[in-house]
């Protein structure tokens, strides 16, 4: 893929996870490390941006030392640094951006700002077998729910997105309603999976929002209200709680799967790539694989550890971008962040 090997350090600090990684264009991913602040924020019932920023600046350098040591490479071996430029929490992004820019300055190597969602979009390419362009990508996380047509590096067309809550956000909010704490999305999935295997007969039916909207957009905020309505009507026993978790997960997964298949039909493509934290959801994985098989399509998932925010996807996207960026653009002392940043609007797409 590349004539000269390039070693890229990736730094991700857009939200509540500090991720760093070393990607070599010939040897692949050399090492990576992630520190999750999830436990710290759980006491606050959500991510506190200022606390997230304060933690990132404690973690980045120790994590970089850890991965350099694990890969057996020196700082001097680096060819470029890639950092998450946005979207995300401004203060958190600035930590990764300032350290990256200064380290690049000191080492006299290029520093590239990477779009967080581009990192997620490309993360399945870190797995084997990897999909080849073109493909449809379902980006589904606590911050995003989008369907994208991906025709190549930087060639992204938005097919549809959520009009309100992201799917992962709906999972977390509903989990909170059900008393599963924060962030409770994974706990809700676990409860739903246990319920299904427990043989209980209780069953609730929840709506499938926008399933027949005729477009590829999503809406998830109504589902948590629907769960709240159920909670008011029924005595909350472990059984009913499990049944509600199951009904909620089933509704979200159904809509995500149906719209993903509709996106394949619309674009005529046969590869679906799933990225983002909700991509770790087992029922989503099972349902998508089953339905895709029925129409002769293939589904690709990132490794579990690369579903959530991580440094590997940023290092990888940085390595890809290094080939496409002019030398002039690569070298700048001015570092920028874009807390709000539309993947289609920033000249990343052509």
């Amino acid at each position: 893929m590349f004539s000269h090997p390039l070693l890229v350090l990736g730094i991700e600090t857009s939200c509540d996870e500090t991720g760093v990684a070393l990607y070599d264009t010939h040897r692949g991913l050399l090492s990576h490390a992630l520190y999750s602040q999830s436990e710290m924020h759980s006491e606050y019932g959500g991510v506190v941006p200022e606390l997230a920023s304060r933690d990132h600046i404690r973690r980045v350098l120790p994590l970089i030392r850890q991965i350099l040591s694990a890969a057996g490479v020196d700082l001097a071996d680096l060819d470029a640094i890639a950092y998450t430029q946005g979207p995300g929490l401004a203060g958190a992004l600035l930590v990764g951006a300032s350290i990256s820019a200064a380290l690049g300055f000191a080492l006299n190597i290029p520093v590239l700002g990477i779009h967080h969602l581009e990192g997620h979009l490309l993360s399945p390419l870190l797995s084997k077998p990897a999909p080849a362009f073109p493909f449809v990508a379902l980006l589904v996380s606590g911050g995003h729910t989008q369907l994208m047509e991906v025709n190549g590096l930087g060639l992204y067309t938005l097919l549809g997105e959520t009009v309100d809550d992201a799917a992962g956000e709906a999972f977390d909010k509903t989990a909170k309603l059900l008393g599963l704490g924060y962030p409770g999305g994974p706990a809700l999935s676990k409860l739903a999976d246990e319920f299904v295997h427990s043989g209980h007969s209780k069953y609730f039916e929840l709506p499938r929002p926008m399933l027949h909207s005729g477009d590829l957009n999503f809406s998830f905020s109504g589902l948590k209200t629907a769960v709240l309505t159920l909670m008011h009507k029924h005595e909350m026993t472990p059984d009913t709680r499990g049944a509600m978790a199951f009904a909620f997960q089933e509704a979200v997964v159904d809509v995500l799967a149906e719209k993903s298949l509709a996106a394949l039909a619309k674009t005529g493509l046969t590869q679906l790539v799933v990225a983002g934290g909700v991509g770790a959801n087992r029922q989503l994985r099972n349902t998508l694989c089953r339905k895709a098989e029925q129409i002769g399509a293939t589904v690709f998932f990132p490794e579990f550890e690369f579903c959530t925010d991580n440094g590997a996807m940023i290092a990888f996207a940085g390595a890809m971008r290094m080939q496409e960026t002019s030398d002039q653009d690569k070298r700048t002392d001015v570092f920028t962040i874009n807390a709000r940043w539309d993947l289609e609007m920033q000249g990343l797409c052509t």
Binding site: E50, S53, R54, I57, V60, L61, I64, L75, A90, G91, L94, V95, A97, S98, I99, S100, A101, A102, L103, G104, F105, A106, L107
Partner: peptide, 19 residues
């Protein structure tokens, strides 16, 4: 300024680590 303090700190960290 919290953000300002982290910019100076991040720059100091990055420059000093690299050099």
């Amino acid at each position: 300024s919290f953000t300002g303090l982290r910019i100076a700190c991040g720059i100091a960290q990055g420059l000093a680590f690299g050099a």
